[in-house]
Structure formats: C-alpha cells, structure tokens
Design a binder for these strands. Structure first.
Lengths: 288, 288
DNA sequence: TTGTACGCGTTATCAC
DNA sequence: GTGATAACGCGTACAA
C-alpha cells in the first residue's frame, strides 16, 4: 500500500462527501498588501503547521485585487472549504456570502458586525492599549498622542478605545488615523509633530507604524525617548530591531494560532460559532 | 445560470480530467522560515494575482517542518497540481518525486542539479555580484569581504562566483557563509570584524543580511560608509529603510513574476521545460 | 467481519 | 449539431 506509493485522490474523496481536506485563507486587504503583514504571515504559518500535523491538510490562500471587500467578495463566492479569515472589515459582505452557503468561517480578530454568526479568536486590544497608555503616564508623559489602526478594523477601534480609557482628558488633536504601515506611521507622525509640537509621547497601534514614527522623530531631530516616548503594539519582530527598541504590547502569537486552529477544527465537527479573547502583556523596552 | 448562483464543482471537474485549476506553492525551507522571506512573498503574491486574472486559479502553499528537503519531500508526494517552487536546494529529492509523477515543476531560481528537467526563471546573480564588487573597488575599497547565501542554493553559489570574478586576489578570510537572515548577517559581520579588522567593505548576498551587517557595524563603532562600505542584494523594501540606505542590486521583481507565471502557463499546455535568465541592475545609495 | 452496489458532478465519447 | 452515457476514484450504506 505505502510501498506502491499510493495516495488517495483528494478530488475523488471530496466528491464522495469526505470532510474537507483544505482550509481557505482569506485576507481582506487590497491586493498589494497581501502577504505583506508579518503578523498575519506568522499567524498563518503557525496555523498551517498545526493543521498539517492533524489531518495533513493545507491552506489555500486567496488573492484579491481592488478594494478589500469587493475583491474578497468575488473570491469568497468560489470557496467551498472552511475559511480562515484575517483583517475582516466591519460588516464585510464576503462573510454574508460565505454564511449563506453554509461555509464555516473562522475569523482572526473580532468580526465587527458578525460577532454572533462567525467564530473568532481575538486579543484583548482594549486592555493592551490601556496598559501602554497607563505606562506612559506613569513615566511622566502628559501629552500622549496616538496613531490608530484603520477604524473599520477591530484592532483600530479597540486600541483607540483603550487609549481613551486611560488618557484622562481626551484631545482630538492628538489622534491621527493610520493604516498599520511603516509609511503610514511616518506620515502620521510628521502630521502630529506639526499639529502638536509639544507632544511628549506617541502610542502607535502597531509596531510597524511605531518604527515609522521613530524614523519621523529622527528626521525631525526629536530624541527618543528623551524628547518623545514611542510605543508600539504587537511585539512583532521589528520591535526588537529598531533603535531604541520598542516598548510594546505582546500578543501571544503561538497560543493565538493554537486557539485559531482548535476552534476551526471544532467548526469542522459542526460545533456552534464561538468567540475567544486572549490576554496580552506589556513589554517595556528602551523607547519609553 | 448565473442568476441561480451556480458554480461548477472544482473537484468533479478535476476528477473528470479537466486541466488543473490550482497551482501548488512549494517553498523549500525549514518550517519556521516559511512566509518569512519578503522577497519570496512579494514574488508569490505577484504570481497569485496574474494567475488569478487568467483562469481564476489559486495557489495552495504547503507547509513543511524539519529540514527543508525532507519536509518538502513528504509533502510533494501529496501534490497533484503543477508546482511553483522556491528556494529549491541542490538536487532536491522532492523534485524527483514530482517529476516521476509527471507533475510539472516551475522553479524560481536555477534548480541546481535539475536544470534540464524542470522549467525555471532566474536572475543573473553572477553578473549582479560582479557589478557590485566592481563598484566597491571603483570607490577605492581594497579589503572587500562577503557574506554569502546558503551554498546549496543557486543565489548563494552564483553571487559568490560573481564576487570571485571581480575581487582580484581572493582571500578566504574575507568570506563568511550566511543564511539570508538578519540575525545571520549580524553574526557573520561580527565574525568578519574579528577575523579581518582591516576590512573596508562588506558585500552581503541579501539586503536583509546587509541590514544585519549595518547593525553589527554600529555596535562595533564602525561608521558606514566612512569606515566600512556595506552593500546588499535584491533591492528589497528594507534596503530603502536602513540608515544609511543600502547600495544593492535590483531584481526586476514584477517582470520576474511575469516570466514565472507565463512559463508556468506554458507548461500547462505541455511545452517542454525551459530556462529564462533575467538581467539585474546596480542601485547605488548611501551605504557605499 | 468482508464484500458489493451506488452516487458524487463533471468531461468525453459515441451514437444519432 | 444534439443528447444520452460511460468513465473518473472514493465514501458509504446495505447485504451477505
């Protein structure tokens, strides 16, 4: 059997009604940002490996062009297998497509507007943001600005909520919306420095944006952490490679992926959608 | 037809002998490095999008654990569709598996030991390395070290060959083998600085390693480019984000992906394996 | 326990 | 051209 090099035909077994042997990977971003997010890649990889161990299944990523939602929408229509979804924007119509067709959907991060119908695992973003802003205030920072994530994504709104929780008196001039990219963080910081030259701390909603913020501070001749403290979020690899290294909030990536896959597997067996929230942890480094 | 929301069952059509609707993505690296290489990701994404335009096909990535070859070997045995292969090491046994089973293989980079049996698109690594070393010599550098890529990968051997072509008198003390990673570049540079304190230039076989080299130089108190010139390879995104920015060799990524997909599509139609080599271009920035 | 039909949805082929 | 039918390879349910 094994000696003859025999392997069952996946198409035939699927056609005969076997349980799905693959999981579709759906990343709801515009085409040029696909596979460009180190956090998502790491998480995806971790899931891929765990899934591989169990049933030797693979994940098929799906590429989308144009605006995030439209692209994923059309592509979702072709999907047959369970879907592992990342960066799902608020009330993403692709999700409706999938749910209508009985496709089990597992979201990474709270699926805004679909909390009851799709399974998800997310992290306690609000708490993390609170922790980091509180840390900045304890270090004596008084004019703390923030660069948010996209406001149609759960991380964007929840990290901003945490910032508001902990900031004391809220000043809209100290808030700029970002897009989780390095270039976005750099541009947002330039804008903040122009708008509020007296700020003494910046909390960026991602480490990549924080890295951009560091570059912008350097260009503007502001010393970090002496003149301005900079904090990130995610504890991504880049957080330990900047100068100075970034204070950040650590997401337990490995356990996160573990939850994602185990919940997904549970959906395979027909369990109801469920939501899991993972705790996060403050990591203090040289940038604050 | 379209109004009823009908979509043909991919498994059934495949079972009935239709042409493959998917391409398998095989990255021959140890599990933890999968999806971690920005160059590979960008290339993969580009292929994904082009492939999507044509026949609305997707790519299924395959995860492997353990040593690169063993993992890909076992996983290759499950593959049925055409394979797009990256980072294929010398005489990779997974390739034999695939070829035995008539699976068309398209390699990114010269598939060492399989040049005649699998199609490939590669870049003129030897020429690129020659160009960059010649550039360093023209700037007056005399003790030019190199951090190579893995020597079982085509980029590793060919970029080293180009270095030897242009270096004049070859000194083994100035050669350290790297692994294309940031940490590897950093460690290799520390080793070089210990071994040959008088070196005045480092050519790293990838931008990521060059970024690590910059960090090591900074830690050692050596100024770049005043004391030591640092050059990379790939023209990856990181090359424009370091301080100073990296002199490097630009690979025409977009056209590279175009060739990869068009050759792959050609294999679909039963054409014979073919090899294509793309030209590269020197990009001079502040680090030299 | 071991064996034998049938059905899954499509493509291909052969009559018509 | 059009329409019926045999594969494709594996699950599964049912019979022995």
């Amino acid at each position: 059997m094994a000696a003859t090099g025999y392997a069952p035909n996946q198409h035939a077994r699927r056609l005969a009604g076997a349980r799905p042997g693959t999981v579709a990977f759906l990343h709801c971003v515009s085409g040029d940002r696909l596979l460009a997010d180190a956090n998502v890649n790491a998480l995806l990889l971790d899931c891929l490996r765990t899934l591989g161990e169990r049933d030797i299944m693979m994940v098929t990523p799906v590429a989308g062009d144009g605006p995030p939602d439209a692209a994923t929408h059309t592509l979702a229509a072709r999907l047959d297998d369970p879907v592992l979804m990342f960066s799902a924007p608020r009330a993403c119509t692709a999700v409706d497509d999938l749910l209508d067709r009985q496709v089990p959907v597992m979201a990474c991060g709270t699926p805004l507007g679909h909390e009851r119908r799709v399974s998800y695992v997310s992290t306690d973003d609000r708490d993390g943001a609170q922790q980091i802003v509180t840390h900045l205030r304890q270090r004596g920072r008084r004019r703390i600005a923030t660069i948010t994530g996209p406001m149609d994504l759960p991380g964007g709104v929840q990290r901003l909520a945490g910032y508001r929780d902990a900031i004391g008196t809220f000043d809209p001039a100290l808030v700029v919306h970002g897009d989780y990219t390095y270039a976005g963080g750099l541009a947002a910081t330039e804008q903040l420095l122009r708008r509020a030259p007296d700020l003494d701390a910046i909390f960026a909603a991602s480490d990549v944006m924080a890295a951009g913020a560091l570059a912008a501070c350097a260009q503007a001749g502001r010393l970090v952490p002496d003149d301005i403290a900079v904090a990130g979020y995610d504890d991504a690899a880049i957080a330990a490679r900047t100068t100075p290294k970034l204070t950040t909030v650590r997401i337990p990536w490995h356990r996160y992926a573990g939850q994602l896959t185990s919940q997904l597997l549970r959906r395979f067996d027909g369990d109801d959608p469920s939501g899991v929230i993972m705790p996060v942890e403050l990591v203090v480094r040289g940038s604050t």
